[in-house]
């Protein structure tokens, strides 16, 4: 192997022009004995992004709102969906895609709460991708004018990069997780359209500063809307449902834009 550029062939590096090799990637400038360079400049996520755009078009054609719910395991994503099904009362009709590495436990909870649901198991996978969601939709078949809540795999890191075709990412973090979560996981919070601070009924038992937590959210994402709620007591849930209905109305309007 060539010790200068790391390529697997034998070739002469004493080429005539003054050219530093310290950045290890500049292979356009000199001719290798073996190399044919193919310029790609292709996004690594191009395939997922194309499928996500297909999902987005599918949603738009049916005036469906799609939200991608992300957060750490135990942040209260499933509990919020259960509560939302009851609070919305079918306006708009709610359909749910559940993502977990294993088990259909969450799908059973959602079904019991009264919404059609499809469970996606990722196996060892740490996030949902656009292809999985497309498969889920083909099974779920949400009708025109409905809202689809996609509960991603509990994980504050990996789902940030994978577009599913959703209108917005909703990031949940609970008051038991610590107020610095937004700055510890800035990519996820930076990608959020709405940040939900959950389990606020527990605040009297904790040393959690809501003010500091919200400052951290604004530091990584000054544009995100913020809702504080408790799925257990119902406090703040009306505000979340109002946000969801506004998004649903916007999704219907944008279908004709």
């Amino acid at each position: 192997m060539c010790a200068i550029c790391g390529c697997s062939g034998e070739h002469d590096h004493s080429h005539g022009h003054d050219h530093s090799h310290d950045h290890g990637h500049h292979h356009h400038g000199h001719e290798h004995a073996h190399g044919t360079l193919v310029e790609l400049e292709a996004r690594i996520l191009a395939k997922n992004d194309a499928l996500a755009q297909k999902n987005r078009g599918w949603f738009a054609g049916r005036e469906i709102l799609a939200l991608n719910l992300v957060g750490a395991p135990g942040a209260g994503k499933t509990a919020l969906i259960e509560r939302t099904i009851a609070e919305l009362g079918g306006e708009p009709p709610l359909f749910v895609v559940e993502g977990d590495q294993a088990t259909a436990n969450d799908a059973e909870r959602i079904r019991a709460a009264g919404a059609p649901v499809v469970q996606l198991n990722t196996g060892t996978g740490c996030h949902l991708d656009a292809a999985m969601v497309a498969r889920g939709l083909s099974e779920l078949r949400p009708p025109s004018g409905s809202a689809v809540l996609i509960e991603n795999v509990g994980n504050l890191v990996c789902p940030a990069l994978f577009d599913l075709g959703e209108h917005a990412k909703v990031v949940l973090f609970s008051v038991t997780e610590g107020e610095d979560k937004p700055i510890k996981y800035p990519h996820m919070f930076n990608a959020a359209g709405l940040v939900v601070l959950s389990k606020i009924d527990l605040l009297p038992h904790l040393d959690f500063s809501v003010g500091r937590a919200l400052d951290h959210v604004r530091a990584v994402n000054p544009d995100a809307a913020i809702v504080q709620l408790s799925a257990r007591t119902g406090e703040g849930v009306a505000e979340w449902c109002a946000w969801l209905r506004r998004q649903a109305a916007a999704a219907r309007d944008s279908a004709f834009a």
Partner: peptide, 11 residues
């Protein structure tokens, strides 16, 4: 950025 810039093929 999250891209493949290029590949180099063996002759």
């Amino acid at each position: 950025e999250l891209t493949i810039r290029s590949i180099e093929l063996e002759e």
